[in-house]
Amino acid sequence: MIEVSGLTKTYGKKRGIDRISFTVNDGEIVGFLGPNGAGKSTTMNIITGYLSANSGAARISGLDVLENPVEAKRHIGYLPEQPPLYLDMTVEEYLSFIYDLKKVSGIKRSEHLDEVINLVGLTDQYKRLIRNLSKGYKQRVGMAQALVGNPDVLILDEPTVGLDPKQIIEIRNVIKGLGKDRTIILSTHILQEVSAICERVLVINNGQIVADDRPDNLSALITGDRKLTVRVAGPRESVRRILRGVEGVQYADATVQAEEGSYDFLVEARPNVDVRKPMFQALAQAGYPILQLKSMDLSLEDIFVKLVEAKRGNTAPRAKTPKKQETGKEEF
């Protein structure tokens, strides 16, 4: 269990994070979502005891990181943003060193290390010098390092950075598997990653938590009004007229000429109205076929703008989490 209350960290005059509070329960996988510089790494560094907060406290399994550092750190496996590797060691030597460093006891060294490298898929690279490994493999060694000693809390700072798409899926599955009996915080700036792995998302921006929710609730919130791009084969002006005439369409205009004789249109529907069917029928009647139809992906920035708007004006009320709500959590 991770309890964080009122963490504030300033870098000179700049505010790194501002009164961050949350609780992560045992066996929960929580995603930290935020743009670069939002304070994700700072928060993680404070939880793991690498940095100290100006105020507030972080507790791991009830142990304060500042007051009881050695004991608290025993419970943590940490993969920092840049994997902390000794390049002059082989994977085997390095993990064996970590085993000693973390004072692992009760598990046999060779068995435990075998298990860890199997888990992250490093078996073939076990005897290689870390210096010679590719970025993806280095990231895996970093991951393996965090797993040594079977810590009950895992803090992973952008664990899938630098991996190729196949490896990303593999590592996500590994994390999911680990999450069954561990508490995990992972940070990312990729929206899909959160919905793929996490049960809960903390959205952090400018050093503050702007949302704390389940990923599906969050995506419902942020797709409250739908934006679509439609590619239609037909003359620009008449297609636009037809689109604007469709029931529920708030705005429609051509953006670019996509293929010969067809245009991409940006269509914005009124909140909670699905315009796809009436749009199709209207265009079909007029004899202009739809070549492509997709909903626009919101960028992370758009999400923040929306969440911040929601927080301020309550225009789109935040869906409440049906799951356990902890005390000490930020309320909006």
Binding site: N45, T48, Y50, V70, P80, Q82, P84
Partner: peptide, 14 residues
């Protein structure tokens, strides 16, 4: 330089 101080300082060693 290699950021391994981060490893040492977050491990259970004073």
């Amino acid at each position: 330089k290699q950021k391994t101080d981060q490893l040492l300082l977050t491990s259970p060693v004073s």
